[in-house]
Nucleic acid binder design. Sequence first.
DNA 1: TTGAAAGCGCTACCAT
DNA 2: ATGGTAGCGCTTTCAA
Lengths: 334, 334
Amino acid sequence: MHHRKPTIEDVAREAGVSRATASRAMNNMPGSSARTRALVAQVAQTLGYRPDPAARALASGRQMAIDLVVINYEPDLVWIGGHPYFGRVIAGMTTALAGTDVQLRIHVASLDKAGELIDAVARTTAGAVLVNVTSDLAVRFWRQCPHVVSLNTPAPMVPLVASDNTGGAYTALAHLHRIGARRIAAIHGPSINACATSRRHGHRDLIEDAGMPDLSANGAFTREGGYRAAARLLEQHPDIDGMFVASDLMAAGAVQAITAIGRKIPDDVAVIGFDDSIAATCANPPLSTIALPVEEMAATATRALLDGDLAPTWLSNFPVRLITRQSTDAAALC
Amino acid sequence: MHHRKPTIEDVAREAGVSRATASRAMNNMPGSSARTRALVAQVAQTLGYRPDPAARALASGRQMAIDLVVINYEPDLVWIGGHPYFGRVIAGMTTALAGTDVQLRIHVASLDKAGELIDAVARTTAGAVLVNVTSDLAVRFWRQCPHVVSLNTPAPMVPLVASDNTGGAYTALAHLHRIGARRIAAIHGPSINACATSRRHGHRDLIEDAGMPDLSANGAFTREGGYRAAARLLEQHPDIDGMFVASDLMAAGAVQAITAIGRKIPDDVAVIGFDDSIAATCANPPLSTIALPVEEMAATATRALLDGDLAPTWLSNFPVRLITRQSTDAAALC
DNA sequence: TTGAAAGCGCTACCAT
DNA sequence: ATGGTAGCGCTTTCAA
């Protein structure tokens, strides 16, 4: 016996009705008796019929998908699972897509395969959100498909949803300064990352305005990096009384390093992170931080894609918000 | 001027070639001169032509997608972004899908919309991975589409990828016992969750074997829940010297509660979590925990879907692994 | 190397 | 309520 995948034709024949009737019955369209409906459903069931999504999409004209493209700079794909940011983007996109019949597709590639992926998705997508995609690759995408929004990474011409990273860093440092810290160290993210660079600028602005020295180190946006950077900074500058850490993940590591050498947080060293990710609340003590409305940003990007009017250089900017917890304020509620 | 979306027909006409030639040229198929190729590409570019994925899929017969279905029990969609587990599943699936031309689609629904989503996806998917989907809904899915794997939640007939939660809990508690803890409290997840239930069983088994009292509380799998449960347990049983917490997220909260009242970890109270998620490493001190190979599990589920031979009751079981860090072992490296 | 034409499986319109 | 049928936009033989 030859096993072809059953089509609606097979169902119709077996049920003794026309294709049209079978289609109506299975899609619960008006104009189809309950008897027929039941019969067709029954036949479809026993035949194991599954409608072909492509054929259905082609015939009906609807069916869309929005693509999320993420580039993975680390050699290991694991970071994407471990990174708190990524899930929030999906959550935001999902929210924006709820109620529509638009699907969400996910693509992840390492840096060496990034070009291929960009081209492949750009050729076929109805709209895409770019996360962690470098400026040049974003432009490459945009050239092939203008229905695209970059999240947080600016690129010439490419529509952008951004947040005020520079202002956020400034606010964070101003908070440390306000509560009395005067020897404030900073742990930055990698320069390749646009957010990290903006946050560096905010840091530079405030230490200039406040006339404080630049006590900076690089933490590579990882917890381990944050731990090591903090340990090194404290060794080189034992009088540090505040620490601005450009991501919560690094800040969680910094907190561990600080308490490991017996300093108290916030009494000896006040610490503030960035992102308001899960790492901020899991740290001990919980971290003051700058909240990024990632979900809303992703939702906005998605809606912009759905609406379709995306002029080049379209820009949506989101404010950030200071959240104070025990790492800068002993009296804060947990 | 009427703006229809340009089709390959338009490109062909404009380039003065046939549809077939245009198709070949754009897909870089053999049998197409460089001149034609360039010409067609040029025309396509200026016309802003984008191939219709549905039509292409229908005509070529290829193109598949695997679906990830997640049910969100919390009222708020945010948890999915905050939950460390979810991103790891995607990372695993992505790995398994790399190199194939199979797409990954994501679907999230709240509990009240879960039935709808299950039916919608089951009707059209070529294969699906179910995360956090209750047993009855998983069965409902399976009835409509047998190409499905449930992750960690057993359901009658439904193929399953599981990990040894019961054994993991037993191992975790045995570790606490081995390092000398005798008054061991437990913070559990919600009974509705299959993993939580298995971990309860492992806990029950060990305290019976070791002849220890049952000092249990419920932490709802949230950090806040873990914090409150730990605080309450310590108040009711001040002599607690060990704590088994059924998820790292809850354990991070428990750690905060324990240090907040001045107890030392691990000297006064040793703590062990579960999952080896980001919450475990961000806690302070870092948490000993039971590592779940979530990425591998998700990858296995995905590959099983791709291979296609999924007998009912197909089962793949993964071992778990004890990871020791400072929360049970002061000398552990960070 | 190119063109003509036959579908891919389904929906939706127009009759009946 | 049902059946016939014309496409949806593309790929892929088969001939030229």
